[in-house]
Design a protein around this nucleic acid. Structure first.
Lengths: 337, 337
DNA sequence: CTCTGGCACTGTCGCCAGACGAGTGCCAAT
DNA sequence: ATTGGCACTCGTCTGGCGACAGTGCCAGAG
């Protein structure tokens, strides 16, 4: 690898470590590059011309630009092995998890702890998972509870206000048919399948079943229920006083579920790193996202990742996110089928 | 009311409004106290002796102490009527809420919006509400789903790993008996009631029912499931740069469910205001809590409130929290029974 | 006894000038 | 292509200075 790139890597590493602009002299000292500061200065001048680094003001050290970070993660970042403590934490954090909420909660906390950044975890997406069971419960007083259980352990329920009293027998029939039709199918197939449930001679049943069907569809489709949880927002405040003015917009953005969905939405299956201005939202300019899908091998059901300052430890973050995602994926697959 | 107290009120109001230490002169100008600055200075000296106000440094204006705020909320704070916009927001924010999660989510967002502080809402406590329905669902492959529905709309579910295949008939019997026994009862009565479910001649049923019973009890008792949600943490960053150093510990504290539970735990039924050092946790020293119970009249099922800097608009916050709590309480009562 | 106007005192904040130092860019030499 | 040297640039730190806001105290008036 050319020395110029070696210098860029050194700059990124030092800057991430010290959080201060790095100059040619300290660079020559801390890294065994085998050349003098003057030579490094020449390389740095070139790197600056090409837009990989800048100086905040004349006569200060250099700081990587977003473009510089991009090159770094694409071509220069090696894999950083996890520490023993991290590995241990990952292997034990799911012990004793009782339900899906618990699993997701533990995951997001773990991620924020080991990366010391804001962690973001999307619940297993309803549309990508399959139906394990549909339950209809007669609550009396003209109310029916509908429960939808997916193979990823997610349980969604609604209470339906039927217009008339509901007969248990009728409900049982409906339940049986709904399950026969839907179990094992993906949620996004439901609309087509459920059509055949609707037409039926009996008047009473007609009303009820169409209500039930529409409610199930609502549950399956409604994207707003694509929940995302986050943790570790306190880590944002750690970013030195220079970040203080920008922490508010970031926090505000993070409170919008929609923004989070968009944030993770494009981050498809494989490891995705989005740096600074690569975000659409410009309140997230100073931050980077490291995210990946999780779930069955090659068939992710959701996305998780971390969000931190562009000046972050990419190799470490990538390693952590990947390891956690893999572990959770295995866990869901094992316990889920 | 003595003029001294009038002065204290004026100081609190001005300080909350301007966020700057308030001096005798501006005080005399902005408030029609009918006396000269010199007189006010005398009163202020007394107030300072008694510990209600301090000056940050010798020649600066006065700032209320925690004790001063305490006196203010106890004896001086009038009721501030809600603005028309607030009233409108409160009356419409629950329209179209689909389930309990949704209700709580909307509530916490509303509260943080209108008070511009961090809002905290506790889910209806399981132990205080009553059972509406218990459902047992045979999932096949030796699994049984247990669903517990309360009158507040909360739905709790667990999946039970029965040791053997489960017969539907058996499960139906168990379901019927469990419901006959528990519906309408409070969750904390369940332990006593469920004892009678356990002893039974049949061997197979014996095993299953004891498993089910213990699971139901776990659901009813487990306090860790007393979930609390919060919103509006971005508002913490609004608190000027002087607060910047203290925002991190606060955020950290807020991420601990346990802390939140303790925070709201003591805030019983009626309106509670906890100011600064009155918190046990000293990372919350600079903050105040305004909280109240909500639920059926005189029989709260949960707590909600807001957390902000001690320097906050108490009358406004109290009015908002009270109004929202009342509205949510009504909503739950109406739709819940 | 209470209130008021006057006055001296004190600490903070903003401003400016000067010293310092880190770091650069360029150039001539190897 | 690399290196040492050197002049130059700017940002940061420091100390001093004056303006300012607000106080405490005191003597006098109602």
């Amino acid at each position: 690898m050319s020395r110029k790139l070696e210098v860029l890597r050194a700059i990124v590493e030092d800057y991430v470590a010290t959080e201060e602009p790095v100059g040619s002299k300290s660079l020559a000292e801390r890294h065994a590059l085998g050349v003098s500061p003057a030579t490094i200065r020449n390389d740095m001048a070139l790197l600056e011309e090409e837009g990989f680094i800048t100086q905040p003001h004349t006569s200060a050290g250099r700081v990587p630009t977003d473009k510089g970070y991009r090159l770094f993660v694409d071509r220069l970042a090696g894999v950083k092995p996890l520490s023993a403590a991290e590995r241990r934490a990952i292997e034990s954090f799911l012990e004793g998890a009782v339900d899906l909420d618990d699993v997701i909660g533990r995951t997001v906390r773990l991620l924020s702890q080991i990366t010391r950044q804001v962690a973001v975890v999307q619940y297993p997406s309803l549309t990508r998972s399959t139906v394990r069971h549909i339950e209809l419960v007669n609550l009396g007083t003209r109310r029916v509870m509908i429960v939808l259980i997916t193979d990823t352990g997610r349980v969604e329920q609604r209470i339906l206000d039927a217009k008339a009293e509901v007969s248990d027998i009728l409900l049982g029939e409906l339940r049986a048919r709904a399950n026969a039709l839907c179990v094992g199918k993906r949620l996004n197939e439901l609309p087509d399948l459920l059509i055949s449930l609707a037409p039926r001679a009996d008047q009473e049943e007609e009303v009820l079943s169409s209500l039930v069907v529409s409610m199930i569809l609502e549950m399956a489709i409604e994207q707003s229920e694509e929940r995302i949880v986050l943790s570790g927002t306190a880590n944002l405040a750690r970013l030195g006083p220079d970040f203080t003015h920008s922490v508010r917009p970031v926090l505000e953005a993070l409170e919008e579920q929609v923004v989070l969905l968009r944030l993770l939405g494009d981050a498809a299956e494989s490891m995705t790193v989005r740096i600074g201005h690569e975000h659409e939202l410009h309140s997230l300019q100073g931050t980077s996202l490291v995210a990946t899908g999780y779930g069955r091998a090659g068939e992710p059901v959701g996305t998780m990742g971390i969000l931190g300052p562009t000046r972050m430890d990419y190799p470490g973050s990538i390693a952590s996110v990947r390891a956690v995602a893999q572990y959770v994926g295995n866990f869901l697959t094992e316990s889920g089928s």
